[in-house]
Simulated scan of single mutants.
Amino acid sequence: MLTGYDVAVGENEATSAEDRSVTFQRSADAYASSVGLSAATSDIFGCAGRFAGDPTGCAALNRHTAQLPRAQWADPSRFYQQSPANWYAKFWHDRAINGRAYGFPYDVADQSSFVSHGDPQWLLVAVGW
């Protein structure tokens, strides 16, 4: 039975069509060297260690919204406005269909490209490069 449910996720068409080296030349990530926290960069990017049990807090650190009131942490218009931030995650969100990408673990606030649907009839996957 078809439900009419249709979703597309991943890189947008322009990013998918360009040469891989061009795509990666545009990604800049100064976050690791400028974050200034005592936690390991891998814990911040991986939402591990002290951040493993706090998905929204980890997302706020990656998006540079942790200084805002907690109610604003899930507002996409406030994401990646200044450093330090996970510019790598922003890079992929900027190039993704509907802005949804899995930029880091716990990419919460309806920003992940994760798709779940009961009783799917088919799946189309396009792989570039």
Rank of each mutant, 00 (worst) to 15 (best):
L2D: 15
T3P: 09
T3G: 09
Y5H: 11
Y5V: 09
A8H: 05
A17F: 09
V22I: 09
Q25V: 06
R26E: 13
S27W: 10
A28Q: 10
A28G: 07
A30H: 04
Y31T: 04
S33D: 04
S34K: 01
S38L: 07
A39G: 15
T41I: 12
I44F: 05
F45I: 02
C47T: 01
G49P: 00
R50I: 10
F51D: 09
P55A: 00
T56M: 06
T56V: 11
A59Y: 05
A59E: 01
A60P: 12
A60N: 05
H64Y: 05
T65I: 03
L68F: 04
P69S: 04
R70M: 01
W73Y: 08
W73D: 11
P76D: 00
P76R: 00
S77Q: 01
R78N: 06
Q82A: 12
P84Q: 08
A85Q: 14
W87Y: 11
Y88C: 14
A89W: 07
A89F: 06
K90N: 01
K90G: 03
K90C: 04
F91S: 02
H93C: 11
D94E: 13
A96Y: 02
R100N: 06
A101L: 00
F104M: 12
P105T: 05
Y106C: 08
D107G: 05
Q111I: 00
V115G: 07
S116H: 07
Q121M: 11
W122F: 15
V125G: 08
